[in-house]
């Protein structure tokens, strides 16, 4: 990840000769003082609040730590155990499906709705707020209960299907074959946050480009492809990176819908849910910490790939 900025920069050309390298070094340190002054609050936060727990969790991942007693050093035991823990492997599988299916689906819906809502029309503020509502409610206990009821064997969904002539007796949240998909649906349904970020991004595209394109008689589609997408790409990139990270850490929805069990039969046992279950439910915080660092490695690698790929499609003006 050492060259993130160069990689992501559109004009990131690499210095080759010693003189160029020296020049680049000088360039890199141009704003040293100002840079660190602006960064000061974040640095203080990092040192005082973040780094300690970060390192502590790394240390704990090599221990047996029940929370109640002091940690005991066990070396690589937790990491070895991860290799042969079938529930962990299942959690990884469930989470990958969720990330691979849920994230793109949610982003496409969010972008589509954001584009629709970005055009001048009456009642815009109202629609925007309505579409954001599920995200306000997403993690609440009441909504989880309603969700379980709607998708229950006698729930509204099955009743609607029966009206359509389908003999529906499926327990959408209680059958291990379907439960994950209803949670993915719940995830897509709460597309409010990426939508808002897209909207803000769309608003930042200067109108002059569209006006110039309109003068040239560009179609809606070509305006979208040639102006909107490139200029929105940093924001699309942000949403992609953060939604992938977020999806890997997905916890609340699965927790409330399955009552914290990840059930039925571990079919919605997301990685973080299992981590929480080990750490707090079964007093194995050392193992949970090891799981957390495996997650960091996986998500970090994916994020690095995301950054590498971004140089091909993300456009920055710097």
């Amino acid at each position: 990840m050492s060259a993130l900025f160069e990689l992501t920069s559109l004009k990131g050309s690499r210095a080759r000769t010693p003189e160029e390298k020296a020049a680049r070094r000088k360039e890199a340190g141009r704003d040293n003082l100002a840079g660190y002054l602006f960064l000061l609050p974040w640095l203080v936060g990092l040192v005082v609040i973040t780094i300690g727990p970060l390192i502590a969790s790394l240390y704990l991942s090599f221990t047996d730590y029940s929370l109640i007693q002091a940690p005991e050093w066990t070396g690589l035991e937790n990491y070895v155990r991860m290799l042969e823990d079938p529930r962990l492997h299942n959690a990884l599988r469930v989470t990958f499906i969720y990330v691979v299916v849920g994230t793109p689906l949610q982003l496409v819906v969010a972008l589509g709705i954001a584009l629709l809502l970005n055009e001048g029309m009456k009642g815009l503020a109202f629609y925007r707020s309505i579409f954001y509502l599920p995200s306000l409610l997403g993690g609440s206990v009441a909504i989880a209960l309603l969700w379980r009821q709607l998708f229950g064997t006698d729930g509204l969904v099955n009743q609607l299907l029966r009206l359509l002539g389908v003999d529906a007796t499926i327990g959408w949240v209680s059958d291990p074959s379907y439960a994950l998909w209803t949670i993915i649906l719940l995830h897509v349904w709460t597309f409010g946050s990426p939508m808002v970020i897209f909207l803000a991004g769309l608003r930042q595209i200067p109108a002059m480009y569209y006006e110039a394109a309109a003068v040239d008689g560009a179609t809606r589609w070509s305006r979208f492809i040639r102006i909107t997408l490139p200029l929105l790409s940093p924001i699309i990139f942000f949403n992609l990176v953060l939604q992938v990270i977020g999806a890997f850490q997905s916890f609340t929805q699965a927790f409330v819908v399955s009552n914290g069990t990840g059930g039925p039969s571990d079919s919605t046992m997301f990685y973080t849910l299992y981590l929480y279950d080990r750490g707090f439910g079964n007093f194995e915080m050392g193992y949970a910490a090891a799981m957390a660092w495996l997650l960091v490695v996986i998500v970090g690698a994916l994020t690095a790939v995301n950054f590498l790929l971004s140089r091909f499609w993300v456009f920055y003006d710097d």
Partner: peptide
């Protein structure tokens, strides 16, 4: 986003890592 200072990329990467670690293992040390 705008300033060029030493180790910028490193700090940026560290910042991203802080988002990636699940809160449940951070909360006790914190």
């Amino acid at each position: 986003a705008r300033l060029k200072f030493r180790l910028r990329t490193l700090w940026f990467a560290i910042m991203l890592v802080t988002i990636m670690l699940p809160i449940h293992v951070i909360v006790v040390p914190q």
